[in-house]
Nucleic acid binder design. Sequence first.
DNA 1: TGCAAATGGTTTCATATGAAACTATAACGT
DNA 2: ACGTTATAGTTTCATATGAAACCATTTGCA
Lengths: 156, 156
Amino acid sequence: MPAKRQPAPATAEHAPLQLEHFLPYRLSILSNTISQTIADDYQRRYDISVTEWRVMAVLARFDGLSAREVAERTAMDKVAVSRALARLVAAGRVSRAIHDDDKRRSVLGLTETGWAMHDEVAPMARAREREVLAKLDAEERAWLERILDKLQPAKP
Amino acid sequence: MPAKRQPAPATAEHAPLQLEHFLPYRLSILSNTISQTIADDYQRRYDISVTEWRVMAVLARFDGLSAREVAERTAMDKVAVSRALARLVAAGRVSRAIHDDDKRRSVLGLTETGWAMHDEVAPMARAREREVLAKLDAEERAWLERILDKLQPAKP
DNA sequence: TGCAAATGGTTTCATATGAAACTATAACGT
DNA sequence: ACGTTATAGTTTCATATGAAACCATTTGCA
């Protein structure tokens, strides 16, 4: 019975997954494609990784965060944040001080250099996002928004 | 002028990205969360990685593919496929022969052991997908389908 | 107080990953 | 035929990543 498996019978007997219609797979491909396209824009130019850029993006919005808070907001783990910060501080893009009331905690923020870079990269990132969304019409964009909201874990 | 940056003024001056509304970022989080949830199901139990599982999934559908064809269908690069195959063959889950007319090419397929595992994992994966999609109603699911089709590069 | 448990952050170690170099075979052009 | 170029697949090397161990400080509470 289990002889050489040929395409047709195998399908019939075993109900294999169709990856191209499998949501997790499709999301993974789409997400990687989009992120990589955007990252290509700035990685070579500024020698910065996606994780580093994400750290900079949250610090642009929330000045004075601790490393743990950055990790929360970026959904990265603390090791990744620690390493990204080490590089960013070394490159003079992020400043790190020690919290007055708690010497374990760091107080992070963009430096002037960091801001300068941010102000160049942020518009590029937004432009790329617009390019992607341009493939959809207004109605589809609205649904996408709504669908992502429902699927997302939704943090407090 | 560039003194201590505080949250509010920074935002006003520099228009920072709001990651939580930035499509690439949201997709990345969502995709990782979902893939990881599913992977947790089988990784420990079967000592297999996501990439290995994807290779098995395409071989379940298309018997006799070459490594390059597997790479195409999984959107993985050939190094990743080569390594996944090495492990899968060693574990006795995939069979590898040499193509009759082209000795460079391999002819791949699931073994009986591979099929047995496939037939346990595939339903689990599908069940997880259903759990995710259960958060959406029928209309939203239809839109998601349509939106993914439009955003996806669409391979021949 | 003073000591156990918790927390912020870094380092270590083992594994994962991709680009480029490499080997073997096949296809092409003359 | 025969050398050049292309292709399938593997190996190497350098980098990325996460879990767990680790250090320093703070918190909780007897």
